[in-house]
Amino acid sequence: MLTRVTRTLVATAVILAAVGGLLGAVLGRDPGAGGLDGALLGLAVALAVGVHLLVRSAAGRGVEASSPEAAEDSVERRVWVAASSATFVDAVSVLVLVALLGLWAEGPLLRWLPLAGLAVVLADLGVRVRRGWRRQVGDGA
């Protein structure tokens, strides 16, 4: 168990360093951004990627992952997978819309546009999970 955790941590650290280094090098060369800004941004993104990978890895190996509810044939898992699959298509559309609007947006709108997109996707996922749950499990179960 410890070996697997160590392996995950090492892999995460390597990815983090690689992504951070790459982003820092690319952004640091941008005439619009200072070298330090580029490196800091690269490090921030790499940290986010690292945390994401760690949480995902830990979730896949935790007690919850081996519970009956997480079994492939369980209704809980099927509701979640169906909702996630449907939300993915919507999320791509929202991402495209945010990217297109971002080309013309300025000021505060540009700052809040990605957050608004994220809120829409999360709300979409919540509604789909709730609808799937009510259809396949019911309210009283």
């Binding site: 009956p68 044939d73 209704v75 809980e76 259809r135 499990v137 019911g138 179960a141």
Partner: peptide
Amino acid sequence: AARVAVSRRTIISIEQGRFDPSLP
């Protein structure tokens, strides 16, 4: 549920006709 390795809620939903199980 324990014998077929799924949650109890899955058995309830199948018995109520709300959930069609996978082939396995």
